[in-house]
């Protein structure tokens, strides 16, 4: 083999282990799931014995009110938590981006919730939400107020609060890192140009943080669509279907209803949805850039 040829091949050789792992750990299960979603598949059968049913699983799901309910719960849950977490996380980062004594300790304390295992978070909140012995209702009652039916009537709100508690720190640390990497002198220039603290945030800080914030929101959104453990532990999807997010429904369809094909089709719906979000988000930023360029050209032509 010639040296030039060997040199060309070498990088691929180095990448090969990663490619193999990707294929085994990612592409194979994904392909398996897509294949399975077109079959009527009971866990007692091996996949070779199953019957091909075409798009039946997808069509059934599309018209299944329970799945639609589950999908809308997921959408409400995901968008509520990401919106609230973005506002709180970025807001806190803007507030805590300063050098005062003990700030580093405070920041460390702040990111603790993120490090707790989701099952533990679920258990913890379940006990705190407990109607009689839970922290919240005991506190309310000691103040002479009525207890709240946290995991009953307000189950979705309660799981949303728990998720916000756990994941706001994630947004916070990324937003803080973005803030601290902003050019100091540009902010000083803005102060001299007459920008108030608010105007600095609106005109300088947020626009400059935006690329990081978009990616952060996207990551959180993808994560929020897949959340399972916390809700499983806290409510098991109940009462009724009020907190049954898609991930939970997938798990139940596969285990309780023993319909692996349907569960696979459901997973694919979720996958498609997330892909659409990702593509949509990137298209949006591309469009914004293109529009800015077009406007700039127009202004120049006008002059």
């Amino acid at each position: 083999m010639s040296t030039a040829r060997a040199n060309r091949i070498t990088p691929y050789l180095f990448m090969a282990p990663a490619a193999v792992i990707m294929a085994i750990a990612l592409l194979y299960p994904l392909g398996f799931m897509v294949y399975g979603s077109f079959r009527d598949w009971d866990p007692s059968q091996s996949i070779g014995e199953t019957e091909f049913v075409g798009f039946k699983n997808y069509v059934t799901l599309w018209f299944d009110p329970a799945f639609r309910e589950s999908l809308s719960v997921t959408l409400i849950f995901a968008f509520s938590v990401v919106t609230a977490e973005m506002i709180l996380g970025v807001g806190l980062a803007l507030l805590l981006d300063r050098n005062i004594r003990g700030m580093s300790l405070l920041r460390t304390l702040f990111i603790l919730p993120m490090m707790i295992a989701p099952v533990v978070v679920g258990l913890m909140w379940r006990y705190m939400y407990h109607p009689t012995v839970g922290t919240f209702n005991r506190t309310l009652k000691s103040m002479g107020l009525e207890g709240v039916d946290w995991l009953g009537q307000h189950a979705l709100l309660s799981v949303i609060i728990a998720d916000i508690w756990q994941w706001t720190p994630f947004i916070f640390i990324l937003a803080l890192a973005a803030l601290q990497s902003l050019p100091r002198s540009a902010l000083e220039a803005a102060r001299i140009d007459g920008a108030t603290a608010w105007q600095q945030i609106i005109h300088i800080k947020l626009p400059l943080m935006m690329p990081v914030l978009v990616v952060t929101a996207l990551l959180r959104l993808i994560d929020a669509f897949k959340v399972l453990e916390v809700i499983l532990v806290m409510t098991e999807g109940g009462p009724g279907l009020s907190t049954e997010i898609v991930a939970l429904r997938i798990s139940r369809t596969a285990t309780e209803f023993r319909e692996l094909g349907t569960a696979a089709a459901m997973s694919n719906y979720l996958l498609i949805l997330l892909l659409l979000f990702t593509i949509g988000m990137f298209t949006l930023t591309r469009l914004q850039e293109a529009r800015a360029k077009r406007l700039a050209r127009q202004i120049q032509e006008d002059e």
């Binding site: 540009a186 000083e188 220039a189 102060r191 001299i192 007459g194 920008a195």
Partner: peptide, 18 residues
């Protein structure tokens, strides 16, 4: 700074990149 009525040029220019 904004109430002192002055303008400033910085060493690293401090332009608003966006």
């Amino acid at each position: 700074p904004k109430d002192r009525g002055l303008a400033m040029v910085f060493q690293d220019y401090a332009l608003y990149p966006h």
